[in-house]
Design a protein around this nucleic acid. Sequence first.
RNA 1: GUGGGCGUAGCUCAGUUGGUUAGAGCAUCGGGUUGUGAUCCCGAGGGUCGGGGGUUCGAGUCCCCUCGCCCACCCCA
Length: 437
Amino acid sequence: MPKLQAPKGTRDFYPKDMAWRNHIVDAWRRVSIRNGFDQVDGPIFESLDLYKVKSGEGIVSELFHFTDRGERELAIRPEFTPTLARMVAEQANALPKPIKWFCTPNLCRAEKPQRGRLREFWQWNVDILGSDLPVADAECIFTAVDLLKELGLGPQHLRVKISHRQTVRHILKKLGVVEEKHTAAFELLDRRDKIEPAEFTNGAKALGLDEERVARFDQICRMEFNSGSLGVLYDSLGIDPKDASVADIQQLDDQLRAFGIAEWCVFDLGIVRGLAYYTGTVFEIHETSGAMRALAGGGRYDQLIELFGGPKTPAVGFGMGDVVLSDVLRDKGLVPEDTTPRPDVFVIASSDRGAGAVASNVAKLRLDGFHARFSYKTTRNVGKLLKDASDARARFVLILGDAVGDAAGEGQGQLKDLAGGTQIDIALGDVSSKLRV
RNA sequence: GUGGGCGUAGCUCAGUUGGUUAGAGCAUCGGGUUGUGAUCCCGAGGGUCGGGGGUUCGAGUCCCCUCGCCCACCCCA
């Protein structure tokens, strides 16, 4: 029999791992809800065609796909956006706008695992549909930043790098690149750090740019503008700030400052995202050191819902994966030793008579809503039992001796605070109210 | 898909030029002592040395294939 092990690029979640995953997913959920998003989900597999709509045939080799007994071609979801688009397209006219949805699906991609990338991972998706206002873009970014803060990260660790397709298009136009070649220009821009300078220059020439303009194009793409300093960009390019083509990015900047997250944000026109479907704002969250792959990425995709057969619906959103997020938190020393739930109370017996009352007292405490545990050991050795309680990371220990009554809640016990070490005599009927303090 | 590094117990690792039934610490489980958390003492379980094939009297050790992990590419929805 072949060795039975978790498939390549997947993870087993033992209690500590599961607690950590929950730590992340719970934070995603908590932050989403307080930012006004509703949770949704869809099937973990969809028809293969759904993924071809957005990404073409080329996507198939990246998918785990199969044929069911009805000869239907299906695929495990590699992303959530097509499902989201399908769901929105189906009920777009009935849903109140703006639609603010989030989800935390697990996704599978048939890629070779490496740092920051596995074959199964969890991804936080946050989307606002039905509004083309820059405030929606800003609220998505605010929500992403809120999550980072929630997990203890600060602007010293991460930066939201923001660009805007329309602004870049406007600059390209100013430099003399015809509109049909803008997509090629985006691709070239995206690859500029991966290719030789000569190849970049040649690519730029193919777009109709001469030597001087190539240099200018490259220079602009390498500049960063802090929030509030977009004027510098306009000046250097001779753009009128009142020009409609830059109004959008200017409003976004104003909103970011209104939300109070300007210090996290920087405008970097070199951020392109490979995705052809982004139409306006695009952004990525990067480590300030620039080392790792992007922690999150997103942008505006105003035409996607139509592509999936829905009405024209502007949309903006982002995704954040658990793998890179965990890497970042680990690097920054923000991973707690153990995130498994701690027992409120651990019940032990120091006498045979006390042992007879353990189950009933545990039952009562549990019915009162407490996380209560006890030991299966038969020893009356208080030291050993306290060690069990301590190992379980319990907050309190209830010690039952000869003073217990015949029924739950009767008689006396002792309640020990494991953190402080203090111990008090207590009537068993008063334990729950004492624990609530 | 391409290239490099690495696989011995749950974890961290020893294991001589190929040579008896492959070891240690920690962890786990059981027992004992002090009945109030560190401990201390005794004991147990756990490895087809990632898997398969080959060379050899003999392979954890040498050769080939394969699987997995890590890293870098490709790609990144």
